[in-house]
Design a protein around this nucleic acid. Structure first.
Length: 105
DNA sequence: CGTATGACAACAA
DNA sequence: ATTGTTGCCATAC
């Protein structure tokens, strides 16, 4: 198959970081990539998140773009917004207050 | 190997 | 604030 060990490593590293994002906080795609050891690979973060199974336990909804907006197209955007609000992160005019909810270790 | 695409981001005007 | 451009990394054809 077309899967190399490096790819699986990447996915594993992204998932490890993803799992560490605290409830009630968010990170950007760029943040996630950087924390996973792939600086400037924001798009890679998106690709990996897109591949996650629908029923994953990982907090995929805590990843948004650098502008505090949801990048996921409908109907996913709706699920993400609901999950965020469920943990106290409300979107004001379609944006998350990054100043307040962005997680920086 | 070139081109297009995508849950992105930084920067210029 | 908004729009357009360029850069980035991987994948699909």
């Amino acid at each position: 198959m077309g899967n190399s060990n490096r790819d699986n490593d990447a996915i594993l590293r992204f998932c490890r970081v993803l799992a560490e994002i605290p409830h009630g906080h968010v990170v950007t795609y760029g943040d996630l990539a950087e924390m996973a050891g792939y600086p400037r690979a924001a798009r890679l973060a998106g690709q990996i998140l897109r591949k996650l199974p629908r029923d994953t336990r990982l907090p995929w909804h805590r990843v948004i773009n650098a502008q505090g907006r949801i990048s996921l197209p409908e109907p996913g955007a709706r699920r993400q917004r609901e999950r965020l609000e469920r943990e106290g992160i409300a979107l004001i005019r379609g944006r998350v207050d990054m100043k307040r909810y962005r997680w920086r270790p």
